[in-house]
Each structure stands twice: as C-alpha cells, then as structure tokens.
Nucleic acid binder design. Structure first.
Length: 422
RNA sequence: GUGGACGUAGCUCAGUGGUAGAGCACCGCGUUGUGGCCGCGGCGGUCGUGGGUUCAAUCCCCAUCGUCCACCCCA
C-alpha cells in the first residue's frame, strides 16, 4: 500500500473549525489597522540569510540554530524568514517608501523557526506585524499600544491580557548597563544556574527573564536598566507611560522585560496572557531606532510589534463564535430536477447575495437529503418535487422552528427569502 | 537541542500473552416525496513502524517514527 504523506512537523493544517476564528481575528485587525492609517505590505517569505544575521543579531538562538537556511541553485544562502521586521525594513529601504516620513505599514503571514513544537509554538506560525518609520515622538509608541488594546477589546480578549512595559534605552546606555549587569552577575555567579551562567557571557540581559524561580529573589537585587538611562531616554519613556495612563491603559513596568532580538532600543512592550501555558506572549514589540541605519540607509527611527495569530486564535476559541448558518438547503425529488433547482437557487442568490444557499449535489433518497439539510443547520429546506415543480411551486420546510411546511411559487421564492434574511 | 507522558476504528477511549471492544460519527431500514427523537441492522482497525523473546504478542523487551507537555527559545 502506498504510504500516506503527512504534514511536516510543526507546520499544521488549519481546518474549517478553526479558520473561522482566523478570519474573525484578521478581519477585525485589518480594519482596525486601516482606521489608524496603516497600509498593507506583502512581503516574501524567503530572504537573503544575511538580512537576518545582520538584523536579529548573530548570537541569538534564532539565527544560530532555528533558521531554515539552505543554498539556492546558484549557491546563494537563503532563509525562510524567522520574523517579519527585517524584511519590512528591507522593503522600506529598497522601495524608497522610507522617504515618505511617518510611513505606517502592516503585513501578515507565516514565519519559520526550527524549534521543538509545543503548545503555542510551531515551526511555521503566523504573525500580524505592524511597523512605523521615521517617527521619534513617543506618541507613536503609545499609538501602537493603544491600538493593540483596542483590538483585544474588539475581540473580547481584554480581560485576559496584561501589558508589560520597559525601556532599553539607546545603544550607549544599553552597552554601559550591559557591562554593569555582567559585573554584578559575575559577583553572584555561584548562585546562578547553568543556563544563566551561559547567558551571562553571551547575552547577560536575558539572564533577567530566567524562568527559574530560584533566581527570582536574587535577580530582584540586580541593577535596573531603567535607573541607568540618560535624561532623554528617561523622558521618552516617562512620556509613553503618561500617554498610556491618559488613555486608560493599565500596564506593568517590568525591569526584566528584555527582548530576544538585538535590534530593540528604548520602548519595549509585551502583551501576555496566563491562559495559554508556557507560551503566553500574545504580542510583542518595541523601538528599533538603529535598525534602518544598520542596513545602510539613512538613519531613521522605527517601532513595531508582531502578534502571534495561533496564540490569539487559541484564546478566541474559548469564546462562542457562531459560524454563519445556511439560509437554504435545496433538495430535489429526483436527479433530473437538479438543473432546475440550480437555476432557481441562482435567482435566489441575486436577491440575497450574502446568505449561504446550498444545493444538495449528493442525491439519494429525499430522506437522505433531508438528513443532510438538517445537519447543515439551515433555516429552510426547499424541496423541489416533480409534480409541484411542474405547477411552478416548491415546498419550504422550516427546520429551526415549529410550523407547517409552506407551498410557494418558485417565482416568489427569492423575494420571500429576502424577507426572511433580515 | 534536553526531559517526561503517550501512540488501539473517522473522533474520544476501554482491553487481554492465544490474532480486538464501547460511545460518538457515518450508511441503510422502520414512511417507494421529507430532517431532528427512538428502535433495528451495517460499514469500519495488518492494535504507529521494524526487529527481538515466546508454541503464540496488540499486550513483554529494544529500536525507530510521530503526537503532546515542559525546559531552552520566543509570537
């Protein structure tokens, strides 16, 4: 027997039961983004490997061991994008869109990381990413956060999300702090676990968000980045906080919120939930004022965030969200009537274009067709019988309510449906 | 990459060293033109795969693949 080919690990199919939540999420998000003046970018999934090594930081795990990298036919090193910002920045530079000050864009699509799959973590996962370029004012930081809060509200998720906020300062401040923290951690090295000792050298900031509860007390004592910011950075951060407060956004200042990607600076934030197990970050982002220059273009500040669609969908699924149900399920007494049924159904479609109108293509006994009509959860089963159709009539059976079966003329069926589709 | 749990019908799961069962789903009959409820019948599994032990393995052992959860990492 021929072996059945399965999907690739960590790259699951999304089935109809779930896709309706995806559409709910995306339709809500896309129209919200539009209302704030963000425009869509469609970006490739494959990029030069160097784009990511340069952007994300070559010592991060993402670049070191999680990228899907391979040689193109001509030998060029290509990678499936592990995140969206690098490609968005590349596009903005290359297209010249960066020359329009204050460009605001979004994109949606799959990202790829070769990680061990677990709840909320996949090898192909989808993000909605949002980026704003050329704006250094803190109002844009606040706008992005306020906008995302509005999205949670529209999706009914506001109760399950909490906002964490921090500032990483500028490059110099961060480097100075990094040294300070490294020295401090070295003094307490004997209390650190194995992972933290390793990160102490490679990426000391990340020691701070260790999940090991045994380190919690110790890390509380560590020097705080926020207290080592210069006046300008501090003022920027304070202003973001004030704008959020003015707009009724609750947040938690979190000294231990550092980002996994090297390009972040100043404001960083994360929307988290405790309803999804270990992978609770729903949406994360921050400023990357040095990234554009890093790619050789005129220095231009930037800020953005990305939300994990699979994680949001998982939260949405705990809510009741009814699929649209059919208005009509049309059945025929015998196969020869199906052609007429089809035409009649098309006339109905002209009249109620947004309703779901179904024709039974499978046939069989009327009983079998009626069972399918029932299962479809249709409001009305329209029955085309030979004799009555010859008289120009059809039967309409009410499937979701009590009441006698109706006899209507085929001609008036579209209007009748329009009246019922309110 | 590390650790743990688990892989038996489409789905959720029972089960035994002597080649398998339930519920749900699906199909049919009970009305040769009518659903839902009920009754009856039916379809459906090389018990993940490959080795080993045994007279005999779905059950024991090993390996392998896969799934899930956690670590790591991060959306």
């Amino acid at each position: 027997m021929t072996e059945i080919i399965r999907n690739i690990r960590g790259m699951p199919d999304v089935l109809p039961e779930q896709t309706r939540y995806w559409r709910w999420l995306e339709q809500t998000a896309f129209s919200l983004l539009q209302s704030y003046g963000y425009e869509e970018l469609r970006l490739p999934v494959l990029e030069s490997t160097e784009l990511f090594t340069r952007s994300i930081g070559s010592v991060t795990d993402i670049v070191e061991k999680e990228m899907y990298t391979f040689a193109d036919r001509n030998g060029d090193s290509l990678s499936l994008r592990p995140e969206g910002t690098a490609g968005a920045v590349r596009c903005m530079i290359q297209s010249g869109l960066l020359h329009t000050p204050g460009a605001k864009v979004w994109y949606q699509g799959p990202m790829f990381r070769h990680e061990r799959p677990q709840r909320g973590r996949l090898r192909q996962f989808n993000q909605i990413g949002v980026e704003a370029f050329g704006i250094s004012e803190p109002t844009i930081d606040a706008e992005l956060i306020i906008m995302s809060q509005r999205l949670w509200q529209q999706l009914g998720l506001a109760e399950q999300t909490v906002l964490k906020l921090n500032s990483l300062g500028n490059r110099e401040e961060r480097q100075q702090y990094r040294q300070l923290l490294q020295d401090w951690l070295q003094k307490h090295q004997q209390h650190l676990d194995e992972d933290s000792q390793r990160r102490l050298l490679s990426n000391p900031l990340r020691v701070l968000d260790s999940k090991n509860p045994a380190l919690s007390d110790l890390l509380q004592e560590a020097p705080k980045l926020l207290q080592h910011l210069g006046p300008a950075s501090r003022a920027h951060y304070d202003e973001v906080c004030e704008l959020l407060t003015d707009n009724g956004i609750d947040f938690v200042q979190d000294d231990r919120l550092v980002r996994g990607l090297d390009y972040y600076s100043h404001t960083v934030f994360e929307w988290q939930t405790d309803a999804l197990g270990a992978q609770g970050t729903l949406c994360a982002g921050g400023r990357y004022d040095d990234l554009v220059a890093l790619h050789g273009a005129k220095p231009t500040p930037g800020i953005g965030f990305a939300m994990g669609e699979e994680r949001l969908v998982e939260l949405l699924q705990s809510q009741a969200h009814q699929a649209q149900q059919p208005l009509v399920y049309m059945v025929v007494q015998e196969p020869s009537l199906r052609q007429a049924a089809m035409q009649l159904l098309e006339h109905c479609r002209d009249r109620v274009p947004t309703a779901i109108l179904l024709l039974d293509h499978l046939g069989g006994s009327l009983k079998a067709q009626m069972k399918r009509a029932n299962r479809s959860q249709t409001s009305y089963a329209v029955i085309i019988g030979a004799e009555e159709y010859a008289r120009g009539e059809v039967s309409v059976r009410l499937m979701q309510q009590q009441g006698p079966q109706l006899q209507l003329s085929a001609q008036e069926l579209p209007d009748w449906l329009a009246g019922r589709n309110a």
